[in-house]
Structure formats: C-alpha cells, structure tokens
Design a protein around this nucleic acid. Structure first.
Length: 278
DNA sequence: CCATATGTTACTCG
DNA sequence: ACGAGTAACATATG
C-alpha cells in the first residue's frame, strides 16, 4: 500500500509529532519483522539512542539514531506507523513498540507481517542500489531517456523496478502511464522521445499530487493506509484509472480495463493508451 | 473453497 | 546475460 507519497506523508507527520526523543524501551511481539538482529541484541543497540532525524528514501523510512546508527523501516504491503500517548495498549497486529521519553510511543502495526526493520551503521548497504528519487534533483530526463532506450522490458515492470526509479508502486505507476497515454505493456525502448518526456513529467505530477493529498487510502471501514496520526489520505478521490475498473475514462469516457501485467493488477484505458509497434 | 490485495526477492526457464 | 513468470512471505476480505 504505502508508496512514495504515503511514506512521505508518514515521515512528515512523524517529524512534527516526535521532535528528537530518546528511545527508552523497545517491546517486540513478533521478532521476524527485525531483519538483521536477534530481539535482545536489537533492544540493546536501540535503547538509550536518540532519534536525531527522520528522512525518507524511496519507500523506506530512515530513523537517524545517535552514534551513527540507522533504523530503516520498510512497510511493504500493510505496515503502519502510529504515534500514540503513553499508556496505550498494543492491539491486534502490533508487532513492535518504541517507547520514547516524550510521553509517546511509536507502534508498528502490520497485518500481513511483510514489513521489515533494518538496524545498521551502513545505510548505503540497504539504500545504495535504489534508483533516483523521482522528486529529487538526481532525477534527470537525459539519464531517464538513456535507460529507457537501453532495455527491452515492458514499461510497467520498469516503473515498478526500484533500481530504475525509486518509490513508484502499483497505484502511481498506473496513474502515470495513463497521464502519459502509454500502454502498460509497451516495451520501453520503443517509446518516442515525446512519450518519454510525457512520462517523465507524469511520474512527478502523480507523486506530487499524491503527497498534496496526503496519500491514497483505499478500502472502507478498515483503511489500508493511514498517516502517523491515524488519518486517512484523500488521493483516492483524484485517481484517474486505479481501482476504477468499468468506470468511464476521464478523457474519452470509455470503460477502464483491468488486466494483469508484470504479475500486478493493471488499470488502463485501451483507447487512450494504445500499444504501438515500432 | 477460490481469487484478490498498494511490495520485494529468490528462483527457474527459455 | 536478460527478461518473463512463479512462488513465497501471511492475513483479510469478498
């Protein structure tokens, strides 16, 4: 669920809510979510450290701790980070709690238990292979264009590849391809320069809009994504094709189709996004 | 029971 | 080497 805009929203919320607390205790209910440490070792290394800074890289949340330690969190499909007041009890699917010295606790909740914490002094090991941040200065058209030309893969698979561009997931990929008018199965090397440009811009547009709307929250009753203050986003109301199967295309009014591409549910307009031979 | 789900990665096959 | 496809992780929902 959480893609770049959702993780960015969470991080911005955490920065406002947390300041720079010291971690006074750690409760671990499900130790497999810690990727690289035994629970006791993890607690020993984390307790007493100060959270100096919180940043985002791709879909990772990076807690910068004192003494050059980094606590890196990936939420995968259903991970949530919620700040709550001291005294709040852990509930269903809470797997780890950071107790802080500012009167709050950070709960890590994850229905499907796919998320992972990485505790390291060498963050580049985990983050170094990621592609450019699409909203950062290192995302350059010239390089983007060159890489698109250099592979035979289909465009949807490439946009989901975190080493190509970092932070895109299934929702924003479908949205960007719709905005650019590109068929999800179009081989990247066949994209015209004009389509490359459109896609380059569309990626940034859909992500910026997602952040402005504080993320996409799908599902009724039990929201799949909430920010760190437990609020839903509103970007679901701005989606053009994702989760709109059978509804009219915003451009041509024809019915939005859903197919499987790169093993993922893929929403698109077969009229506005034509597969073209080159 | 079956299919599906917003992510990632290891593995197999051609 | 490359790229596509599959399974796995684990749980909930329709």
């Amino acid at each position: 669920m959480p893609e770049l805009p959702e993780v960015e929203t969470i991080v911005r919320g955490l920065i406002i809510q947390m300041q720079t607390p010291i971690i006074t205790d750690v409760t671990i209910y499900f130790s497999k979510i810690i990727a690289d440490h035994q629970p006791d070792e993890f607690r020993d290394r984390v307790i007493g450290k100060r959270i100096i800074k919180i940043t985002r890289r791709a879909k990772y949340i990076v807690f910068h701790l004192s003494e050059n330690w980094y606590l890196i969190l990936h939420l995968r499909m259903t991970g949530k980070v919620i700040i709550a007041r001291d005294g709040q009890k852990a509930s269903r699917h809470d797997h780890l709690v950071l107790h802080l010295d500012n009167g709050t606790q950070l709960f890590y909740n994850d229905t499907r238990k796919f998320g992972r914490f990485y505790l390291t002094q060498n963050p580049a090991e985990k983050l170094g292979k990621l592609g450019p941040e699409p909203l950062g200065e290192d995302f350059k058209f010239k390089e983007f264009s060159r890489k698109l030309k250099s592979t035979q893969r289909i465009i949807k698979a490439v946009l989901l590849d975190q080493t190509f561009v970092a932070g895109m997931g299934n929702i924003y990929t479908d949205e960007a391809l719709f905005e650019a008018g590109i068929h999800p199965e179009q081989p990247t090397s066949t994209l015209s320069r004009q389509k490359q440009k459109k896609l380059f811009t569309a990626i940034q547009n859909v992500l910026r809009k997602g952040i402005q709307n504080k993320g996409t929250t799908l599902g009724e009753g039990k929201p799949n994504y909430v920010s760190s203050d437990n609020k839903s986003g509103s970007n679901q109301h701005s989606l053009q094709v994702f989760a709109r199967t059978g509804l009219p295309c915003p451009k041509c009014q024809r019915s939005i189709k859903k197919i499987v591409v790169a093993q993922r549910g893929t929403h698109y307009c077969s009229n506005c996004q034509r597969l073209r031979k080159k």
